[in-house]
Write a protein that binds this DNA or RNA. Structure first.
Lengths: 244, 244
DNA sequence: CGCTATTTTGAGCCGCGTCAATACGGGTGG
DNA sequence: CCACCCGTATTGACGCGGCTCAAAATAGCG
């Protein structure tokens, strides 16, 4: 999947530059339910960045806050580096998802965003976006909608569920997000390392590994390296207690 | 403090009904940095609720989303009830703080809010608020600011710190929030039960209790029941690793 | 002054983190 | 095409923090 995705992004890169209206992500993204003339305004302030490559930084902790970002294609992770120097992964992002919402008040980025797999990204300068919002209530609404969705996700992070529960939730959630984008929700390639998963789910890499092994042995999944086939959806679904 | 706070709220309840501009919370709240005419608009859609009493619900999980709420005085908690029937406390709120941000997209409240101690609350009907935002960029900005602050708080919840670390963080944070409101940051009365604290910090009530005992023995705090004196600020500060 | 809810204390156990060693895989150069 | 190397992933052994279960102490309330 790595290569396919990035190749596509490259191929249509030129066209992306001026077309929210033609974007396949329209329904998932900011312009959802926007009228044509509003879309035109939005398009004028959107810049497309990329292709960005594995390891590149979209922004860094401490940078000045200036823009929001939407993933066009590829995958990114957001993370903070704690005082003790360890990385803590806040989340992973795929096409249509919004990054950078955490930093508006401080005027400094609270986290860094790094590319996991070759990506195209739309940049929405915040000042301009904000200005358009005052003219287009629907856009303002949608922005709030997306922000609030983000809040929910953050709040749902109920640790103190079992390790198995958190892992199952993570795998199912990732599959569902892919499903909304037209990919298979039960067979995919994860773009992040075990370390990243561990950090995000608040456990050790060893535990992630053991968890995967266990799931494999139980016949719930078939996972080697980063390729995952979910073979027993309902078994995983039973493990996750929370609101997804 | 319980009685004092609620009594004040009652005493000036009448005046509150029409005065963002005279509100002592103005700097902490939504109207921060708003011009006078914008304030007038805001005042016209704000309703004041209360006094609400311990145990009352401000809203419940599943309710239709219609408004945001700002605490005028008193204390509330937000929580979700999981499928297994247990309560999970998402956060505690004091004067000037905003509730209800998690629910915008779903049109249904994702959590419930319950009064911990007699409270006055401002109700901001979302439709109207949203409409004013399109006319008053500064308000829109401030709303985003508050929402984003909320996001940060949610993200900062780094479990997998020690129990002691989480507890220290919680106590210091609570004190600091009180400090911003003119109260002592090192001597106060917590409005929530040990159970609530435990749920919020993702630990068992027994562990909370043991933790308090330990802190007492170390001479860091002097806490009996809900009254807390912080006697060694720096000891606690050393425990908290994260961004507060 | 008893009754009940909350908090504290104690004993025991288990999940998961830590440390350490091994296996795997992908890239590189001969 | 194979040998080598290094980063990532797996597996194993062990210890401890914090959960669980259970009981005692304390506070709030009629």
């Amino acid at each position: 999947m790595d290569r396919t995705t990035s190749a596509q992004a490259l191929a249509i890169g030129g066209a992306l530059r001026k077309a929210c209206s033609a974007c396949s992500l329209r329904e998932l993204c900011l312009p959802r339910a926007l009228e044509d003339n509003a879309l035109l305004e939005l398009e004028q302030v959107v810049e497309t960045l990329g292709p960005l490559h594995r390891g590149d930084h979209l922004f860094r902790q401490g940078d000045e806050f200036q823009a929001l970002y939407v993933v066009r294609s590829g995958y990114l992770k957001a993370y903070v580096v704690s005082a003790s120097g360890e990385e803590h992964v806040l989340g992973f992002f795929m096409s249509g998802e919004l990054l950078g919402l955490d930093s508006i008040p401080s005027e400094r980025k609270r986290c860094s965003a790094r590319v996991l797999d070759t990506s195209m990204v739309c940049r929405l300068p915040f000042e301009e976006l904000s200005a358009i919002c005052t003219q287009v209530p629907a856009l303002q609404r949608q922005l709030l909608r997306l922000i609030s969705r983000e809040l929910m996700r953050a709040g749902a992070h109920s640790v103190h569920d079992t390790v198995d529960s958190r892992m199952a939730t993570f795998l199912l959630d990732w599959g569902e997000r892919l499903g909304k984008r037209g990919f298979s929700p039960r067979h995919f390639i994860l773009p992040m390392s075990r370390q990243d998963i561990a950090s995000h789910l608040q456990m050790s890499p060893e535990t992630v590994s053991r968890c995967v092994t266990r799931f494999n042995e139980n016949g719930w999944i078939d996972m080697t390296r980063r390729e995952l086939k979910i073979t027993d959806m309902s078994a995983l679904a039973e493990l996750r207690t929370n609101t997804g």
